[in-house]
Design a protein around this nucleic acid. Sequence first.
DNA 1: GGTATGTAGTTCAACTTTCAATGACAGTCG
DNA 2: CGACTGTCATTGAAAGTTGAACTACATACC
Lengths: 171, 171
Amino acid sequence: MNTASKSGGDLAPRWLTDEEQRVWRAYLHATTLFDDHLDRQLQRDAGMPHIYYGLLVQLSQAPQRRLRMTELAIDAKITRSRLSHAVARLEQKGWVRREDCDTDKRGQNAVLTDLGFEVLEQAAPGHVEAVRQAMFDRLTPEQVERLGEIMRIIAEGLQPQDSGADLPWLR
Amino acid sequence: MNTASKSGGDLAPRWLTDEEQRVWRAYLHATTLFDDHLDRQLQRDAGMPHIYYGLLVQLSQAPQRRLRMTELAIDAKITRSRLSHAVARLEQKGWVRREDCDTDKRGQNAVLTDLGFEVLEQAAPGHVEAVRQAMFDRLTPEQVERLGEIMRIIAEGLQPQDSGADLPWLR
DNA sequence: GGTATGTAGTTCAACTTTCAATGACAGTCG
DNA sequence: CGACTGTCATTGAAAGTTGAACTACATACC
């Protein structure tokens, strides 16, 4: 009768301490600015949002530069639906092509085109530079290491999440 | 003749090391999952996306629970345009109201309504709990401190950003 | 005052994301 | 085989975001 339920405890909520609040705001502040910054950088230099760039990267590193839609969705941490729309857009830009899957007639492979690869090659240096300038150039090696540890811990806790309908990371 | 220009160096790009790549992926992974998680949590429990919640919080903490549009945009790190749309939505939900500014006839104040405040009061515990579970419950006090330092550094570097047109943080 | 320039906020169109519904195929079990 | 159930991927509509264009007011300067 007194256990806190899944979300929204029944009794006094455990508010954040002042220190925690400061950290939380710094986190929100930094991640928001960073994400916007990268989105604008890529939109300007490569004509696509950050997420689309990430899709091309995943494809470029996959064997045959191709991936099943669901796999790509899982790797990129987005829903299948979102991926469908995104690939449609990338396809119409000529950067990705769809192919039927041999072994499963429901399946589709997203394939990086040569043009897509070129676009990626052109965009990559500027993007890496932006990431470097905003993050790695400003942190000590120790801080980078800590950041990695912390981010892995947070990601871990979020992985096997609740009962959503179309969450691709629910294998 | 050999200095790298603003973005996209002219010579060999400084690629990320393996370690840096791992950290970068962990960062992307964690922030993506976290953001999606909070968005879904708030959409489910309070019927609004994370950013809108943030707006209500800012308003609730302002004197008179009201803020000039531009100030709110700066605090929330979003463009004026996005804020206009957001406030329109919040207004139609009855959580925020617009008022003309006394001293500047161009100006508008966004005012948190009583209903808006109630909604916020109801949503806050669940939201804080979600943040706590995903972040603060999983990190040691030392890690929290490090995270704060790191995020402040990153945010700092992104603040006085380039020549955008409508970026509200260009005071 | 009158002109030029800057600022506050909104609007429009194009684009992206979400959520629920759908179609098509795969795997299981009687 | 035939019915069930699950999975793969897409679709359509509603919601949210973006960037540029726009209106209205403010400020500065002659």
